[in-house]
Simulated scan of single mutants.
Amino acid sequence: MTTTPDGATESLPTLRGSIPPVREWAKTFAIGLCMGAADGVPGVSGGTIALIAGIYERLIAAVTAVTPKRVVELLRSLTPLDGGISGRGALAILEEFDVWFIVALLGGIVSAIVVVTRIIHVANQETPALLFGFFFGLIAASAVILLRALSVGTGLQALAGVVGVVVAFLLSGPISFLDGGGLLVVFLAGAVGVSAMILPGISGSLLLVILGQYTRMSTTLTTFVDSLLGLATGGSVARVVESGTVVVTFVLGGLVGLFTISRVIRRALEWRRRGTLAFLVGLVVGALRAPVQRVAESPGFSQDVTLAFAGAAVVGVVVLLALEWYAVDLDLDSV
Results as ranks from 00 to 15, higher is better:
Val315Arg: 01
Leu206Val: 08
Arg58Glu: 07
Lys27Pro: 01
Val116Ser: 08
Val192Arg: 04
Tyr56Pro: 03
Ala308Asn: 02
Leu283Glu: 00
Leu258Gln: 01
Ile113Met: 12
Ala268Phe: 02
Glu242Lys: 11
Arg266Met: 05
Leu150Glu: 05
Leu207Cys: 10
Arg23Lys: 13
Thr223Cys: 02
Ala129Ile: 11
Ser111Glu: 02
Gly173Ile: 12
Thr220His: 04
Gln293Tyr: 00
Arg239Ala: 15
Asp82Glu: 10
Thr117His: 09
Ser262Ile: 05
Ala38Gly: 09
Arg118Gln: 12
Gln125His: 14
Val22Glu: 06
Pro174Arg: 13
Leu277Ser: 05
Gln293Gly: 00
Leu252Asp: 04
Gly204Met: 12
Val122Glu: 10
Leu231Tyr: 10
Ala92Ser: 14
Tyr56Ala: 05
Gly212Val: 13
Ser151Leu: 09
Arg70Tyr: 08
Gln293His: 01
Tyr326Ser: 12
Gly137Pro: 03
Ala26Asn: 03
Tyr56Gly: 03
Leu51Val: 03
Arg239Gln: 14
Gly46Lys: 05
Gly235Phe: 13
Gly83Cys: 09
Ser176Lys: 13
Val292Gln: 01
Ser176Ile: 14
Val122Arg: 12
Trp271Ser: 07
Leu171His: 08
Leu332Pro: 05
Ser227Met: 10
Ala189Ser: 15
Gly235Cys: 12
Asp331Asn: 15
Gly254Glu: 02
Glu95Cys: 09
Thr117Trp: 14
Gly182Glu: 10
Val166Asn: 09
Thr276Phe: 00
Arg273Phe: 00
Gly254Phe: 03
Ile145Met: 05
Gly180Asn: 14
Ala238His: 13
Ala268Ser: 10
Leu258Glu: 05
Phe101Cys: 09
Leu321Pro: 03
Thr220Phe: 08
Ala160Lys: 05
Val166Leu: 15
Phe259Val: 12
Ala310Gly: 06
Asp333Val: 00
Phe101Leu: 06
Ala296Ile: 06
Val63His: 04
Thr260Lys: 08
Thr260Asn: 01
Arg239Pro: 00
Gly83Pro: 04
Leu199Ser: 02
Ile93Ser: 08
Arg148Ala: 14
Glu57Gly: 09
Leu74Arg: 04
Arg148Asp: 13
Ala238Tyr: 10
Thr260Cys: 05
Ala62Trp: 04
Gly311Leu: 04
Ala296Leu: 06
Glu270Tyr: 02
Ile55Lys: 07
Thr28Pro: 03
Gly32Ala: 06
Gly107Tyr: 07
Arg216Pro: 03
Asp226Ala: 15
Leu159Glu: 01
Gly190Asn: 10
Gly173Leu: 12
Gly47Pro: 08
Thr306Pro: 01
Leu105Lys: 07
Val186Cys: 10
Val166Lys: 12
Gly164Trp: 10
Ala104His: 04
Gly201Pro: 11
Ser334Glu: 14
Thr117Ser: 15
Val237Gly: 03
Gly311Ala: 08
Pro200Ile: 13
Leu59Val: 03
Ala143Asn: 10
Ala278Met: 02
Glu73Asp: 10
Gly36Trp: 10
